[in-house]
Design a protein around this nucleic acid. Structure first.
Lengths: 198, 198
DNA sequence: CCTCGAATCTGTACGATGTACAAAAACTGT
DNA sequence: ACAGTTTTTGTACATCGTACAGATTCGAGG
């Protein structure tokens, strides 16, 4: 094993932690290469030893956030599928809202690492459990993701007077959405409601 | 009328047009104060005579885009409400997608000008026509907006191999969403589907 | 042990960005 | 013609991402 060269004084994790701290304490605009470097006590360009560019750091950050959700809690097939989707959606929303600006970072640089895919697959599995066909389940998974990210982005951009209002809107929309999916399940993939078939 | 002082060589419209051109031709990153100024043939800081800062320019830009949608087409109450919402959503999506990066600008600096409110109110009116109560109509309007902005942002961030796929996903999700709203209409505001009432 | 190569970190620098400040320029009513 | 007012410009600063070259520091092979 060739392990020549100066030892690293940091790790990718240390950099991500610093970035996460900046994000939590001073918002998305404070997540800057120079800021991260200063926080870990290193010259700005040392960061480029661990990540090729800032976008990669941000993607790593998003991955880190997604890694915090506990998937096993939603695998329990004895629970109704609606409850499981609701719980997952609410947890994701909470995770994103806990770090102001994280949605912007995600929307700007879409992550596609293992944690991201794990979340997608967990959601997909629940929807298949619900009785959706493979194709429908994929579309539904996409739909739920859009609602989560879209709602949080909206909320972050224009925070309402009362944050309970935002939570209420999120849940209301989610429930309508689940109603639509339930109807799809009930009719087995045909057009469920009146009249707009192609 | 006191009209003393040097004549303006530009107008706010000229600046917004320049910004829109930049956005269309070279993407959201090219929408910069210096770029706009260069395009209208003026020093960078001359822009600050017309707008207090860059955020205001971007808000104006978003307003400009929203102003392009034709509201009257959706006011025809003889058409089914689902078709009207679908048409509005599809038109908004097309308008946003026609200008890459506009969603990011909107999500970054939420607009709240007259055109923005007009769109909201048009949508609200359709939903009231559909039979939703005032409160439900407001929530539903928010939900539809979230789906449009969220889906377009998703699509802009991670463009799929085939753009028809994205259009299909958008419509599929929108239809599920409308199914959910239809169920709400049918039950008159009570919990429509099985079992998740608070 | 001692040197050589390789990996990492620092110093410095460039171009771009948003925008503040003061001076110049262009216009209008008196 | 003058004075006042507004717009435009010139210059400047702080901050950003990041490229490049040199200094530093290590492990492995002689």
């Amino acid at each position: 094993m060739d392990k020549r060269g100066r030892r690293r004084t940091l790790s990718e994790q240390a950099i991500l932690d610093a970035a996460l701290g900046l994000l939590a304490e001073r918002g998305a605009d404070a997540v800057t290469v120079r800021g991260i470097a200063a926080r870990v006590g290193v010259a700005p360009n040392a960061v480029y030893t661990y990540f090729p560019d800032k976008a990669a750091v941000v993607r790593g950050l998003a991955e880190h956030l997604l890694g915090r959700v506990d998937h096993d809690r939603f695998a329990d097939a004895s629970q109704p599928w609606r409850d499981r989707v609701r719980a997952l959606a609410l947890e994701l929303r909470a995770e994103l809202l806990a770090h102001p600006g994280s949605v912007h970072l995600m929307l700007g640089h879409p992550p596609d690492g293992p944690h991201t895919q794990a979340v997608r697959e967990t959601l997909l599995a629940v929807l298949v459990d619900a009785g959706l066909g493979p194709s429908d389940a994929a579309e539904a998974s996409y739909l739920v993701n859009v609602h989560i990210l879209g709602a949080v982005a909206f909320e972050a951009a224009a925070p309402p007077e009362d944050s309970d209002v935002a939570a209420g809107r999120f849940r209301w929309g989610l429930d309508r959405l689940l109603d639509g999916l339930a109807a799809r399940v009930a009719t087995g993939g045909a057009e469920p409601a009146a009249g707009n078939a192609p």
